[in-house]
Amino acid sequence: MTDNNDHHYNMAPRRKADFHIPPNHLKMKVGYGGLTDNILDKAQALLENNTADFRPLGEMYLDAMMRGVAAVKALPNSTTDDESMISAILFPAMQLKANGGMFHYYLVTQISDRLIQFLEVIDEIDPDAIEIMQAFHTTIRAILLGQIKGDGGQRGSELMKALVDACYRYFEKHPEKKTS
C-alpha cells in the first residue's frame, strides 16, 4: 500500500505542517485542582439574579431584523442577493437567540433558534418565507412587550408549535427550498 493509494483524486495536495507546543503559562499560574461547587453556584446565582433589562436590546435586534426584511421586500426578485439578505435577518436573529436566554427570556432564545434553523436551510427568499419571518418577528416582539420570561409555560409551547407548523407548511409547499 502506498501513500498515493490513500489519496483521493479530488483531494488537495498534502501540506507541510509544523507543530509547536507553547508553554502552558496559565497552568503555571493557576496551579492544580479546580473550582469548588460553592464558587460555581455563586457564579450561576449571579447569572440567574441579574436584573439587566433585555427589552431595549431585544427591540434593537428586532428593528435590525425588520430592516433586513424590509430591504428584501423593497428589492425586485432579480436583484435580490439572497445570501446577504438572509444574513441581514440571520444575524439579528442570532443575537436574539444568544442573548434572550442570558437575560431570562428563554422563549425568545427557543423561537429565535427555530428562525435561525429556517434561515440556515432556505437559500432563496420568496414572499412565503418573508411571511414566516414576519410571524417570528411579531411573536418575539409580543413576548418582549408582554415581558414573558422563562419558557412561557403552556402559552409559550403553543406559540412555538404554531411557528414550527408554519415552517413545516412552508417546506411542504416548497419542497425544492429545503437544502438539507
Binding site: 507541510k16 505542517a17 509544523d18 507543530f19 509547536h20 507546543i21 496559565l26 497552568k27 479546580g34
Partner: peptide, 14 residues
C-alpha cells in the same frame, strides 16, 4: 478548565 488542562498544540501550515 479545558484550556488549562488540555492545551492544544499549534499548527502552522501554508
Amino acid at each position: 478548565a479545558q484550556i488549562i488542562e488540555r492545551p492544544r498544540q499549534f499548527v502552522r501550515s501554508e
